[in-house]
Structure formats: C-alpha cells, structure tokens
C-alpha cells in the first residue's frame, strides 16, 4: 500500500467516508470530523506511518491537503 493510500485510508476509516470524498475535505466539513474525530484521525495517521505528530502540527492539520504537507516534515512523501 502506498503512502497516499495509507493516508486516504486513515480518513476513510476514521470518518466512514469514501476515498473520493477526501479531496478538499476540511475540519468540520462533515459531522464526523469534529474535535473527537480529529483525535481519532491523528491517531490513525500516527499508527499508519509510525510517527508521533507534534502538538502544533496536530492543530495545523485542518484539511486533507494540509495533512499531506505536514507529513513531509516527517519524511512521509505521497
């Protein structure tokens, strides 16, 4: 599974959405991406890439695309 597929899977499993719904998705765009859902997403991303996100990055992770940008700092290329 590629990094992009893993990243998309973190969103689809956490929020119970389809892969085609991830592009452009932002925090609170859907009911499932609330504050609790956000913590679930962070945990799913951390598990998928075996990393620990910094607090500032967790706060900055406000969209699907922003998350991809943040993961570059952790040497996760899509």
């Amino acid at each position: 599974m590629s990094n992009l597929e893993k990243y998309i899977e973190a969103f689809t499993t956490t929020f119970d959405i389809k892969p085609e719904q991830t592009s452009g998705l932002k925090y609170q765009d859907i009911e499932a991406w609330d504050s609790v859902g956000h913590m679930g997403l962070v945990a799913a991303i951390e598990d998928a890439f075996e990393i620990m996100l910094d607090a500032d990055d967790i706060v900055d992770l406000s969209s699907f695309e922003k998350g991809q940008e943040i993961l570059k700092k952790y040497n996760v290329e899509m």
Binding site: Q28, S35, V36, V59, L61, S62
Partner: peptide, 14 residues
C-alpha cells in the same frame, strides 16, 4: 471520555 479543556489544545482553530 474527553476532557475538552485539554483536547481543545489539539484541535484546528477556525
């Protein structure tokens, strides 16, 4: 169970 005062330190700000 959540502790919002702690959890909100980690949520995106609109």
């Amino acid at each position: 169970i959540t502790v919002p005062e702690i959890m909100n330190n980690f949520t995106p700000k609109n």
